[in-house]
Design a binder for these strands. Structure first.
Lengths: 204, 204
DNA sequence: CGTACTTTTGAATCGCATCAAATCTGGTGG
DNA sequence: CCACCAGATTTGATGCGATTCAAAAGTACG
């Protein structure tokens, strides 16, 4: 497995100890293939490299309750101390994931204090990011969410978008139509500077 | 400081090593008092015991960007590895917080492997909870959010609410009016069983 | 008993989702 | 090179549902 390229594409994989790298396995899944099921004893930790994996529960009324949609990053971090998975993990498309045996992962955390610290830092950053996103999603107006995103995720009132606007819209909890329209309006109002992939808030 | 009572009220404070307990200080703040400011070097980690503390940034256009509203729990976990705070922390009312010196906190994490593990587990659970909440807030309908909440936060299609419905509405990203109305409608439809503080989803 | 807050219901408004469709883009293969 | 296709981008018209404003009744607490 070519870890150089992996880390290049996924910075969150940096600092994974070599012993853990050695036992990690890449896996390409079929669409709808389950990675694990609710109630099973956790045996692996996953990292989503491409496409999408969903954590979900089946509600009593038949509905699918999506707990998380992951398109990159660690999956089910909480399964590291848990006795059993508390939800299902299924791929919506052909997904590419890394599989780490939980036992080795825990050993690595326990023995490698650097990795331990990197892991805690990773989790803390994730917590911060998610809390900001929750606050953002609590805003009702589309323009409020856009401004919040730029101020919270960007630097000095300016962000670079690395993905399509459609994907951005989904992260903002808006339809792409609403995002396009609001961007146009804010640009016209002079509230926002909109470049190809650079969005800035007009100062005052 | 009576830690027994504290842990009783705030389970997240369990497993804090005695050495760290010893140097923690309780602090009652005035309304609007800043705990720290953006750019400062982190010196303390905080735990909100009562009332509310907000993390925010000042946007260039003058708006206050709320990154997090905390009404209980650790605050600014990410400041543990950071060179500087990346936002302001201000109290909206008279708040009660615990202050831990960061240096001692880091030492405790480094030397006490149990605490280290408890901390990582705490962060992982927080990540899981927050991801579920983000998915929930992406749902457009009020009833969808209610069902999602019950299935994700409850057990076997049933939750016990420990706070007022008004507070619940805010967590769901709804006005309290919308929540009351939707609960009434779902109860009438037979979708939901609504008790005093117990909400259950009708099975099929 | 009065005050502050939650709970509950009503009516009107507004903004986003939805449906629809045209244009533009990058990539694939003939 | 051009034809073609899938996906992103952009704009329009419509409807629904949550917000907003308003107000009344219930509840906890000193």
């Amino acid at each position: 497995m070519e870890w150089q390229a992996l880390i290049q594409a996924q910075p969150a994989l940096a600092h994974v100890p070599s012993g853990l790298q050695a036992v990690a396995k890449r896996r390409k899944t079929q669409a709808g293939e389950p990675l694990f099921r609710q109630g099973e004893r956790p045996r692996r930790v996953f990292f989503v490299c491409a496409d999408e994996v969903r954590l979900l529960r089946r509600a009593r009324n038949g509905a699918e309750i999506i707990l998380q949609r992951s398109r990159g990053g660690y999956l089910a971090e909480a399964s590291l101390g848990a006795k059993s998975y508390h939800c299902d993990a299924v791929t919506t498309e052909t997904a590419v994931v890394l599989c780490f045996p939980i036992r080795v992962f825990l050993e690595a955390l326990h023995e490698d204090s650097t990795f331990q610290q990197v892991w805690a830092t990773h989790l803390a950053h994730e917590v911060r990011r998610l809390r900001a996103q929750c606050e953002r999603l609590n805003l009702k107006g589309a323009s409020d969410r856009i401004i919040h995103y730029v101020e919270a995720e960007g630097v000095d009132g300016s962000v670079t978008l690395h993905r399509s606007r459609k994907a951005w819209a989904r992260e903002l909890g808006l339809t792409h139509e609403a995002l396009y329209r609001t961007l146009r309006r804010m640009k016209a109002e002079g509230t926002l500077h909109v470049g190809m992939d650079r969005i800035s808030i007009a100062r005052k």
